[in-house]
């Protein structure tokens, strides 16, 4: 395998005295879709936050594009090409749909994603472009959150629980767009509680349990029993 796009090496992370991750290692190749699954509190969101730079870590614990980025603040990692769709969407309530998208692209990284492409991907957003972002339905807000992250033309897109709180039909609709996104050549890390959805979308799966990698492997090769064991620790 050539040098991976993202490499997480023996990452420890936590909040104050509470340690959430213990020596987590993970690799994502260019163009690959990786799913991170696990129960509540397993450390999935912490892992994404550490990769995106919301939480600081050791310099060489996160390597991106061959360079250590673990000590860079979030705004400089975006400039390198790491974008995060945060859990709970976290749209800017004072901004319209279009302004939310535009602010995602404010760094002006070159690439295929621009307003027109986002509206092509999620046509419903074009109709609502001048509405306040938080006036949209949950699913539409999630589309804005994904579009906002794509606007920075990332090489790596991190999606934190994009199915959370959404109706199954809406979840399917959003997941149906992922192949079109990956087709542009970016890598994807999806954190999910919805295992079926995650396994279907990803080629590689990591299962976290209490801050450690309990299981990893190709999505097709993992048995239900192995996943259940890693998930619940039974």
């Amino acid at each position: 395998m050539p040098d991976p796009l993202l490499e997480v090496r023996a990452l420890d992370a936590g909040y104050g005295d509470f340690q959430a991750l213990f020596g987590v290692s993970l690799a994502v190749a260019a163009g690959q879709v990786v799913a991170v699954i696990g129960a509540n509190g397993a450390g999935k969101s912490t892992l994404l936050k550490s990769i995106a730079g919301v939480m600081p870590s050791r310099r060489d614990a996160v390597r991106f594009d061959g360079e250590p980025v673990g000590d860079l603040p979030a705004h400089r990692r975006v400039a390198r090409g790491i974008a995060l769709v945060p859990e709970g969407r976290r749209l800017f309530p004072s901004l319209s749909v279009e302004e939310n998208l535009k602010i995602g692209g404010q760094l002006g990284r070159p690439g295929p994603w621009a307003l027109a492409r986002i509206y092509e991907l999620f046509p419903v957003l074009a109709e609502r472009r001048s509405q306040p972002a938080t006036s949209l339905s949950g699913g539409q807000q999630q589309m804005v959150a994904i579009g906002r992250a794509l606007m920075s033309n990332p090489k790596l897109l991190l999606c934190d629980e994009i199915s959370l709180g959404l109706a199954p039909i809406v979840v399917r609709e959003i997941y149906a767009r992922l192949p079109a996104i990956v087709a542009e050549g970016l890598s994807l890390v999806i954190v999910e509680q919805d295992i079926v959805q995650a396994l279907a979308a990803a080629s590689q799966v990591y299962c976290l349990q209490e801050g450690r990698v309990a299981l990893e492997g190709a999505a097709g090769a993992l048995t239900r029993e192995a996943i259940a064991a890693a998930y619940f620790g039974v």
Binding site: V54, P73, A74, V78, F92, E99, K102, I103, Q106, R148
Partner: peptide
């Protein structure tokens, strides 16, 4: 764009940084 950055940072500092804004 500057005004947008002001409003976004005012709304949510930590997500504004995910947009590449140095608060």
């Amino acid at each position: 764009a500057l005004g947008r950055a002001f409003r976004a940072t005012s709304d949510d500092q930590s997500v504004a940084q995910l947009m590449g804004l140095d608060n």
